[in-house]
Computed example of a mutant assay.
Amino acid sequence: MLTDTFGRRFYYLRLSITDVCNFRCQYCLPDGYECDHDRDFLELPEISRLARCFASLGTEKIRITGGEPSLRKDLPEIIQACKQTQGIKTVALTTNGYKMPEHLPAWLDAGLDAINVSIDSLDANQFNLITGHNKFATVMKGVDMALAHGKTKVKVNTVLMRKLNGYALDQFLAWVKNTPVSLRFIELMQTGDNQTFFDEQHVSGSSIKATLLEQGWLPSLREKTAGPAQEFYHPDYQGTIGLIMPYSKDFCNSCNRLRVSSLGKLHLCLFSEQGLSLKDYLQSDDIEPLRQYIQSTMGDKKATHFLQERLTGATKHLSMLGG
């Protein structure tokens, strides 16, 4: 079992398979994707070895992220490789939803268990303003398809921005009243490229938490492979609400996840100074050297991300690691 010096256990791997994204979200890639490196992205055999290795170290859940992972034509094969790995119980995907109506059936056939869709506004015009794409109807169609499947957990990620959607809580709550999704509000995080935007738009999730509690929402128990959200449910609502508040006290105490970038670098934290290359270890089917190397790095994982001190490490934008 992967355990760090603070006693935290790591059941959850966030695996980026590309840093390319076709959206231009204001908080991440407002000017669109610009490649500043060789696109030596992880290949399917390397991904399979990674999955085997992390599973042997106690990982039970793999979340496939980007950039936008659906831009990889071999995404179904990647999902299948992870799902068929002994020890991996859950394979999840985070997507902007752009390609869901066309490709969701193939992802489900490959074994996808859960899907997170980024939707920062339920207003089509505001969605277009935030993402740079007039694709709200397409994304919502994909969400409806996933819900209709019935066996796939569906979550919606909404980044909180003071001037762009900070006023829309009532609209979101009305939506989850009759829609069985887990809607998670994510506090805007500062990265290397968005300091001015962060200063203008950051809003704490604590006010939303207070509102939920006042309206009778109740805390849910957290599973060991769950992400960092504080989850809430209400007996009168089909959907649930999650709050991801990285600036809150003791946020990192429950950390249970590691990250591997699309370039094959292990990141002990989303905001670590640099990734640790696993590429050389991924060229052989013998995963024992890789196991030993990953275990040897755990002593370097810090107690916290230091975001409160405005230290963002090497993370220029969230597309680098999928958040």
Rank of each mutant, 00 (worst) to 15 (best):
L71E: 05
M1N: 13
L169G: 05
I62L: 08
N116Q: 08
A114K: 13
V143H: 07
D280K: 15
G97T: 05
T90L: 12
N125S: 15
K224P: 13
C53Q: 02
R72V: 09
H149Y: 15
F271K: 00
D4F: 02
I79T: 01
T59S: 14
L266Y: 05
N253V: 15
G66T: 05
T240Y: 10
A314S: 15
W217E: 02
L93Q: 02
T191Y: 00
N178C: 11
H37C: 11
M245C: 10
S284V: 10
D109W: 07
E288V: 14
V91G: 08
M100Q: 09
S277Q: 08
I79M: 06
L108I: 15
S248F: 03
L307C: 04
A168C: 12
Q274L: 09
D38V: 13
K265D: 15
L173V: 08
S118A: 12
L164N: 01
F198K: 05
S284D: 14
D74C: 07
V154D: 01
L282E: 02
Q215C: 08
H234L: 06
Y247C: 01
S48Y: 06
Q230K: 14
S254W: 09
T225Q: 05
S121D: 10
L112H: 03
T312E: 04
E273Q: 14
T90G: 07
T3L: 12
L108S: 08
R72E: 04
D170R: 12
L268S: 04
V159C: 02
G205Q: 01
R52Q: 11
T211A: 13
E223R: 13
M145E: 11
Q190H: 08
G132R: 07
R49F: 09
L213R: 12
G166F: 02
G227E: 06
S207P: 06
P235K: 10
V260F: 06
G205I: 00
S248T: 15
L129P: 01
A148W: 07
E288R: 15
P105W: 11
L213H: 10
Q26F: 04
D193I: 04
N194W: 00
A229Y: 01
L263W: 12
F127T: 05
D109L: 13
S48T: 14
L263F: 15
